[in-house]
């Protein structure tokens, strides 16, 4: 049970960069799944306000799956707030690129495929820098 990933969903409220139908479709799938999950209005806004909740969302031993945008952006939104995501326990599901169906499937699959490694490099250090 400890290895079952936690799920975090970003609604990307303040821009139209994630297609509305993808966000709605993924959220619907999560609601139908009966799975526990965290939903936040906008990770960028949380990073802008250095919301301490980012540390809570990144914390814990369980792997995390994050439905948001590009992994590189998500990694450094957290890293910039001194809430580093574990490079070997985090998978970002990119709702800017995937269909709602594929994003939901990836999110609800218990297998975690970490994808926060630096470009072209193996997963190594956890990003932590300050804004």
């Amino acid at each position: 049970m400890a290895d079952k990933p936690r799920i975090l969903f970003c609604h990307c409220n303040y821009a139209q960069v994630v297609p509305e139908e993808v966000k709605a479709g993924v959220l619907q799938s999560l609601c139908e799944s009966g799975q526990a999950f965290e939903a936040v209005a906008d990770l960028c806004e949380m990073a802008a306000r250095r919301d301490p909740a980012l540390k809570r969302l990144a914390a814990g031993e369980a792997p995390v799956k994050i439905a948001a945008c590009y992994p590189r952006a998500v990694k450094w939104l957290f890293g910039g707030c001194q809430a580093p995501l574990s490079a070997d326990r985090t998978e970002v599901v990119n709702m800017r690129e995937l269909s709602a169906k594929d994003a939901a499937r990836a999110l609800l699959d218990e297998k975690v495929t970490p994808n926060l490694a630096a470009d072209g490099l193996a997963a190594a250090t956890e990003g932590e820098k300050k804004i």
């Binding site: 799975q35 999950f37 965290e38 939903a39 909740a53 809570r56 914390a59």
Partner: peptide, 20 residues
């Protein structure tokens, strides 16, 4: 979410730990 809130949806499985 549309109003900007963060919501923990309790169900089967773990959620993020508490903070302040």
């Amino acid at each position: 979410l549309g109003k900007g809130y963060a919501v923990t949806c309790a169900g089967s499985g773990a959620v993020a730990p508490a903070d302040d």
